[in-house]
Design a protein around this nucleic acid. Structure first.
Length: 561
RNA sequence: CGGGGCGUGGCUCAGCCUGGUAGAGCACCUGGUUCGGGACCAGGGGGUCGGAGGUUCAAAUCCUCUCGCCCCGACCA
């Protein structure tokens, strides 16, 4: 690709609307342009990165027996009504055709796969199957953000496995996990595989592939000692217990103290000796009083799992109505509201709100002084102990780049996807679904590799292998050498970009750093003086001088190092 | 959905508080000088100040409504 003939609009300044490193650099390096909130145009440079990523994905998916198909973006309402997902998903784009029929834009393709399986799979002899596609997904996200990391329209590699039984599903699932590990390794990413929430829809087992980055939206807890790793949405942890002073149960005045910090300061005690009482409201179960230790924060997702339905925090007037006290003074004593307490509170004696404004009660033992049910509710924080081995947990911010999920028979049953087993008995197909976000791979690679001067691509997904900088575009000797090097690279299978613009050298070097192509070849003064050009690694900045006819070999060495 | 911020040439922004001829830098076009880390000089083109309504002799500036975008949180099958 020649710079002068390309749509490669690099930006000198940081775009005002971009915060995340990857977002900023993808705009500055001319990979993408934003059309609307969460809707992007991929320019040639960005497209090349997606193409490289997708080539790796296809290679590994085909390697485990995956068959590529393409499913529609427009879906009839009917299949979503059958699976029970037509209503209640605010992210679904819905539309109506000229005949008044309801349609939606596909946000995922379990329904279509189950529909297809229902018509085409008949016998256990047809199983197992792996079907995959790389297709655009549409989701009306509440808040698109961080450039390409969370968008309303995005490319996704989604695959679906069809198996006769759970044991076979386990094998398909394991094959996907292995393929995913190879894909992300080949893409040059650092990543973790963690246990993930199976969501409100149930499901059996799920893992997420997480690339560490400050721009990520998720957090994972990990134990370096035993390898336990989980999304904080479900990560369990054992916090170090404080020293519990022996205190009789008694009411104490805490005038004006509304927060845990204020109560602890007033009573001159460790916040870990207090209990935080939060009132939540569940649609069918009604009000629930939720308890976590004073220094902990509740993870609402864990609460939802414990209660079995979606909950919301109560309004202040609801708190007064159910507990007879304002928000800062509520507690579990003598209340008719059901109480669910974090497991940490099984042990110890605590200070709780007295349900009387301006008063707390000390010496309170959960389970003895009030009835409650225990569940894992608190958000794991770094330094707490691993539930498996007692090692110290680390907590890291991550970008979700892939997930794998055992679905079971839910969709097959809803859409009538069954097969006849060896005994001639009709049974539902057991499904799994597996996703990868190619754009997120690109963004994560930028997040993880970029330096002060711009992008540093992992060679495997770089838009080009070699960036030839022609310093003196009007110097015929240099121009001729640059053209020859450009042609030689292409002949030998290296993707090359030739900066043939009539620009000052500084501009070209700055752009080369910004664009992040792994190998830069500088054709400049040294050619006339010493008969050499410079071959330089973007990542290490190490430079070697070689004669023009040795560039391809030097570039390959540089790419491999 | 709750909270905050911002909309002024292609880009980054000033001007708004205190109403009175729309500005700067970069980019672009022409000519000249320059040429190994985002050059310089001279000349030039380009803006319904997001939109609508209102106040006023007069609105980028004040008021009301509206649309769009960004950030934090909630949500994320």
């Amino acid at each position: 690709m020649r710079f002068t003939k390309s749509l490669l609009p690099t930006l000198r300044e940081d775009p005002a609307d971009a915060e995340a490193v990857s977002h900023r650099l993808m705009l500055r390096a001319g990979l993408v342009r934003q059309l609307a909130a969460g809707v992007f145009v991929w320019l040639p440079f960005g497209q090349r990165v997606l193409d490289k990523v997708n080539t790796i994905i296809r290679d590994e998916m085909n390697g485990i027996g995956g068959q590529e198909i393409t499913m529609p973006v427009v879906h009839p309402a009917e299949i979503w009504q059958k699976s029970g997902r037509w209503d209640g998903i605010p992210e679904m784009f819905k539309l109506r055709d000229r005949h008044g029929r309801d349609l939606c834009l596909g946000m995922t393709h379990e329904e279509v796969v189950a529909w297809l399986a229902a018509r085409e799979i008949r016998s256990y002899r047809d199983l197992p199957q792996i079907w995959y596609q790389i297709q655009t997904k549409e989701r009306d996200e509440a808040r698109p953000r961080s450039g390409v990391l969370r968008t309303r329209e995005f490319l996704m590699k989604d695959s679906y496995t069809l198996d006769p039984d759970e044991a076979s599903l386990d094998r398909s699932y394991a094959a996907h996990e292995a393929a995913y590990r190879r894909i992300f390794e080949r893409c040059g990413l650092r990543f973790h595989v963690v246990q993930s929430d199976t969501g409100m829809m149930g499901g059996h087992s799920a893992h997420e592939f997480m690339a560490p980055s400050a721009a990520g939206e998720d957090e994972v807890a990990m134990c370096a000692q035993c390898g336990y790793a989980a999304n904080v949405e479900l990560a369990r942890s054992v916090p170090p217990a404080p020293e519990f002073p022996s205190s009789r149960r008694e009411e104490v005045a805490t005038p004006g103290a509304r927060t845990i910090a204020e109560v602890a300061a007033l009573l001159k005690i460790d916040p870990r000796l207090t209990i935080k009482s939060l009132l939540y409201v569940a649609p069918t179960a009604g009000p629930v009083l939720v308890l976590v230790r004073g220094d902990h924060s509740l993870h609402e997702r864990k609460l939802m799992r414990a209660v079995g339905e979606e909950c919301r925090a109560a309004h202040p007037d609801e708190v007064r109505e159910h507990l007879g006290a304002p928000v800062g003074s509520v507690g579990p004593l003598g209340t008719r509201v059901p109480v669910v307490a974090d497991e940490t509170l099984r042990e110890g004696t605590y200070v709780v709100g007295a349900n009387r404004e301006g008063f707390h009660v000390r010496g309170v033992v959960p389970g003895r002084d009030f009835e409650c049910r225990f569940a894992d509710l608190h958000t794991a924080v770094a330094g707490e102990a691993c539930v498996q081995c007692g090692g110290a947990l680390a907590v890291e911010r991550v970008i979700e780049i892939g997930n794998i999920f055992k679905l079971g028979t839910k969709f097959a049953e809803a859409l009538g996807a069954t097969y006849l087993d060896e005994a001639g008995k009709e049974r539902p197909i057991v499904m799994g679904s597996y996703g990868i976000g190619p754009a997120r791979i690109a963004a994560a690679a930028i997040e993880q590799g970029a330096d002060r001067d711009g992008i540093v691509w992992p060679p495997a997904i770089a838009p080009f292998d070699v960036h030839v900088v022609l310093v003196g575009s009007r110097d015929t000797q240099q121009a001729k050498a640059a053209e020859e090097i450009y042609a030689a690279c292409r002949r030998s299978g290296l993707d090359a970009l030739l900066d043939d613009r009539d620009e000052r050298p500084g501009v070209k070097f700055k752009d080369a750093d910004l664009l992040g192509v792994p190998v830069r070849v500088t054709v400049g003064n040294a050619l006339a003086k010493e008969g050499v050009v410079e071959v330089r690694s973007r990542r290490t900045r190490a430079e070697t001088k070689v004669p023009p006819d040795a560039v391809v070999e030097a570039a390959r060495r540089c790419l491999a190092s």
